[in-house]
Amino acid sequence: MGPYTRTISVGAVIVFGLVFALTGARHTTWEALLPLFEWMETTPPGVISQSYGAAFALVEAAHLIAMAVLGGAVLVADGRLLGLILRDFPLRRVLDQSHRLFVWSLAAMILTGVFMACGVALKVYYLNVFWYKMLALVTGVLFVFFVRRPLLRGDVENINPQLLRLVGIASLMIWFSVAATGRWIGFSG
């Protein structure tokens, strides 16, 4: 693909996302996923979640703490990219340390999230907002590991400051959407 492999890949993912969203493929995929969600409720995490409210509450607490830590890591990194906070600390150090925290909290958030989803699999399956959250989460993960991190891994001082701000704003928007749609699930259905 030549020297612009990453740009072409990003473009292809955007086009694929648009085609998927605007055609019948979205509905077909949704229908095909029903057996998976039915099966999820029969798995040990699904049975435990449905039978022991305390277990679900404990896992949900861990999920919310992981989300808070992830939100903190995102706010620190993007706030520094935007030049709003921690301006006395080297950008490289802030980005590296917050990324480490981000990765661990993301792993915890996904593990606890899957556990919780097993308990209410069929409920969330029929909620539009659950799918918006999954879309935001997948976008966030792809954005962090295939766009943001590769950009910031190099010499950050030589990157156009406007681009850094744009990336910071986009990152904040994605994780805001993940958090907002996540809380929305709690008030739906």
């Binding site: 740009t7 590769p150 950009l151």
Partner: peptide, 22 residues
């Protein structure tokens, strides 16, 4: 230099798409 330009262009494209979608 090409690699850096590619990464920057990809970031610009992705960030713009995210902001518009949001």
């Amino acid at each position: 230099a090409d690699g850096n330009k590619d990464t920057a262009l990809a970031a610009l494209l992705a960030a713009t798409a995210v902001i518009v979608g949001f």
